[in-house]
Amino acid sequence: MAKPRHSRRALLAWPLILAAGPAMAAARTKVITVLGDSITAGYGLPARAALPYQLQVALTRLGAPAQVRAAGVSGDTTAGGLARVDFSVRKDTDLVIVALGANDLLQGQDPRRTRANLDGIVKKLKARKIGVVLTGVMAPVEVGGGYARDFNAVFPAVARAHGVPLYANLLDGVARQPSLNQPDGIHPNARGAAIIAARLAPVVAKALATRR
């Protein structure tokens, strides 16, 4: 007795469905978590104007769409980030942007402590098989030449030690530009956040492309 035609169609379709499985899995939207402080938390800005959302927009424009999650806490230091990295970064995260250190600088913390904390954060993430992009903070010369030199050296040293990409200065092109910052002169306004996102996006897109 001949099998119904629709049954034959279903049997023929199974190899195609199975073959498409890996491709469908690969098409999953990748997840980026921004582990940071008030700048990445979007202090003083609506969510759609803040850095995480603007980065998501910038990545889409580059053809590297991803879901970008904000995990910034105002006032957080590298020590705070180390204490919360395990629960602030969800298990489905593909890549973390570690954007901490500005508050260490404002508090005049020992650069050796900042480095140890960043080392700890990166080690925890790599142990979980999560990619990392490290962003730096540049100390102004006004804080003292020796301290500024030691502090600024922390971020490239951590990036080299762990083999992770470094975006040298998160506030590049925005710091000390009144038109790109809020009245406090520290936190970027909406235009400033968009500029940071546009400059950071190519580095993040390249790192994300290596994640499988």
Results as ranks from 00 to 15, higher is better:
2 A>W: 13
7 S>W: 13
8 R>D: 11
9 R>I: 13
10 A>N: 10
19 A>Y: 05
24 M>E: 04
28 R>C: 04
30 K>W: 03
30 K>N: 01
31 V>C: 00
39 I>K: 08
39 I>G: 02
40 T>D: 01
44 G>E: 11
48 R>D: 15
54 Q>W: 02
61 R>G: 08
64 A>G: 00
65 P>Y: 03
67 Q>R: 15
71 A>Q: 13
74 S>I: 04
75 G>D: 13
76 D>T: 08
81 G>E: 06
90 R>P: 00
91 K>C: 01
92 D>T: 12
92 D>F: 06
93 T>C: 10
94 D>M: 08
95 L>S: 09
97 I>K: 09
98 V>S: 11
99 A>F: 04
104 D>W: 05
114 T>V: 10
122 V>I: 15
125 L>I: 09
126 K>P: 08
129 K>P: 00
133 V>H: 10
133 V>T: 07
134 L>V: 08
141 V>H: 10
142 E>Q: 14
147 Y>C: 06
148 A>L: 11
154 V>R: 03
156 P>R: 05
156 P>C: 04
159 A>F: 06
163 G>Q: 13
163 G>K: 13
163 G>A: 11
164 V>K: 02
166 L>R: 08
169 N>R: 08
171 L>W: 04
172 D>F: 08
173 G>Y: 11
187 H>P: 08
187 H>S: 09
188 P>S: 07
189 N>G: 12
196 I>P: 01
197 A>M: 07
204 V>M: 10
205 A>K: 07
208 L>Y: 01
210 T>M: 01
210 T>A: 01
212 R>G: 14
